[in-house]
Amino acid sequence: MKEYSFFPGCSSEHNASAANMETSVRSLCKMLAIQLNEIEDWNCCGASIGYAGGGVIPRLSLSARNFALSKQQQGDKDLVATCAACWLSMRETSERLAHEPEVKAKVNLALKEGGLTYDGGIKTRHLVEVLIEDVGWDTMKAKVTKPLSGLKAAGYVGCQTNRPFGVAGDSFENPQYLDRMIALTGATAIPFAKKVACCGGALMFSEQEKSCQLTRDIIQCAVDGGADCIVTPCPVCQLNLEVYQGKINQLFGTSFNIPILYYSQLMVLSYGGSWTDAALHQQVVPADVMKKFV
């Protein structure tokens, strides 16, 4: 059993927008003997747009509080996130605390007011890194009992799982890890030109039409390539591509109805997990194309 400290993030909470990711990730980790110990009483990481209200020190204090709690509760265990924005915020905070003594000192003055302190030392990682580096491709592949043969998936990496930090030494322009994950489940990863294009992120809330133009292009590219579904590691990508399909159809006269799934949902199903283990009952665009694999 491999053990990690775990930061689920706000969208992975019960009844939140990425509850399907959380459920499928939990199932996946159980199958791969990974134990995720949730940090008790964690707070929001500030996400991509925390800069506007939070500036530097308040924004970085958010992740620093989670680091301090993680160290208190879990010692030096690596801190794992599943959400792209959470992972990015944590990586950014840990790098800035490590390289900017003045920032670290100020953040600690703030933490002290809440009875906490953080001197550094915790490694922050994305679950995908844990899967690739600690579990390994061979073990991930060996677990497959029900290959998703014939399924054509567009591997959509998106932005923040890929930039600015990246996963497993992969390239920014054409990362391979997600296609490899799709392939190990027995499905086919179609060539997908919009693999690392932007879905609009949080601007879906404030610039909806512009963001819908971006998501339309991404979905169209997948549909043109013959994809049965789009697969992503990122909860914002998943939400923007899935929940706004109706709006996109209305704006652009398209008739998209393509399921947007997490890599974890594909893996769980290929490992013999149930429909609910994979949280496929929690899709807004029904994942009917997956029913034949249960």
């Binding site: 996400a47 747009i49 925390g50 800069y51 506007a52 209200g53 939070g54 949080a202 601007l203 809330f205 404030s206 610039e207």
Partner: peptide, 11 residues
């Protein structure tokens, strides 16, 4: 819109 959303609503 993004200023208002990010600062007054999200934060």
């Amino acid at each position: 819109p993004t200023h208002q959303f990010a600062k007054d609503i999200f934060w």
